[in-house]
Amino acid sequence: MAASAVTAALSLDATVVLLTPVVLATSARLGARPRPHVFATAHLANTASLLLPVSNLTNLLAFAASGLTFTRFAGLMALPWAVAIGVEYVVFRRYFRGDLAAPPEHVPEAAEPAPLPRFATAVLALTLAGFAVASLAGASPAWAALAGAVALGVRALRRRETTPRRLLASTAPAFCLFVLALGVVVRAVVDHGLGDGLEWLTPDGDSLPALLAVAGVAAVLANLINNLPAVLALLPLAAPAGPGVVLAVLIGVNIGPNLTYAGSLATLLWRRMLHVHGEDVRLGDFTRLGLLTTPAALAAAVAALWAGLRLTGG
């Protein structure tokens, strides 16, 4: 639940960069086997990023192409998000039953509870509310995110908890430039043949079989070329078909990367984080777990999306 909440509210990168080291440290302190919990941070960084437009960069791109409001997007994705997480939970419980049943190596001493970061929590709550308000006002949710970042940054500077240079570095200008360059490259590739091939593979309509096929194509493409290029290539084809097809693409590029290391930048970053902390994850383990979770979670999430669209007339 922690990984799902962090991913949805703070984005999948927060789960990978912040929560994964916490999981490793907590497992070591409790004497528990870390594998189930570490794998959960990777899978839920992808799967649990379905809920909000701000949970993933792919979501922001799909949100812009869908024509939906912030609240409508979240409403349509809430059931697919919950269903996909449920599938992951069931498979994880069975796959890691030996690790979960193993007794702890030692009983830890009681630790004092950490104080609640009230200011940061309040800013987060106001920022999330600001996303909805901005959408209703016809403004980009980026403005609400900027306001929250400024509030936290100014306070950290006043308390001498950071420096202007570190704040600038946290904006990841190199990554922003990478995304821009990637968009230019993908646009060129799509215009010179890839778009025609994807259009031939992508069925028309928003029936359940069509949505399943769209999500499947998106998942395969994400594992072949990474999920960010995949969504950039597919959104121009999906947008004219309506928001349901756009969201099916999103389900494919968000859940699909759990199948391979190369599926998303978050998974690659997760693997790097584990290496830094001296943990080794075998490719076979990751792939076997992905084969068990990804098709089931993908199909269940698409079915939930289709049901939501039919129930709400969207």
Rank of each mutant, 00 (worst) to 15 (best):
W81G: 02
L211W: 04
M273A: 11
A219S: 14
L221R: 13
D196V: 06
G242W: 05
P36R: 14
L182P: 00
A137V: 01
H277M: 11
R155W: 00
R159W: 02
V90W: 10
A219V: 03
A125L: 15
L60E: 03
L177Y: 08
S49L: 12
A14W: 01
M273D: 00
A102K: 05
G278Q: 06
L194E: 07
G284T: 06
R166V: 03
L250K: 04
S170I: 01
L269W: 11
L221W: 06
A42Q: 01
Y261H: 09
L76G: 05
A303L: 10
E105D: 14
W200L: 13
V245G: 04
L18Q: 01
A297Q: 03
R97E: 07
P36N: 11
V90S: 11
L289T: 06
L61M: 15
L152D: 05
G130E: 02
T58H: 13
L76H: 03
L61H: 03
S11K: 09
A149F: 08
P229L: 01
L18M: 07
R165G: 11
L198E: 01
L167G: 10
T163L: 13
L44C: 09
L291M: 11
L152K: 08
T7A: 15
A84H: 01
L265C: 05
L298M: 15
A122Y: 01
A129S: 06
A64L: 06
W270C: 10
V302T: 14
H43L: 15
L19G: 00
L228Y: 12
P164Q: 04
G216V: 04
A219E: 06
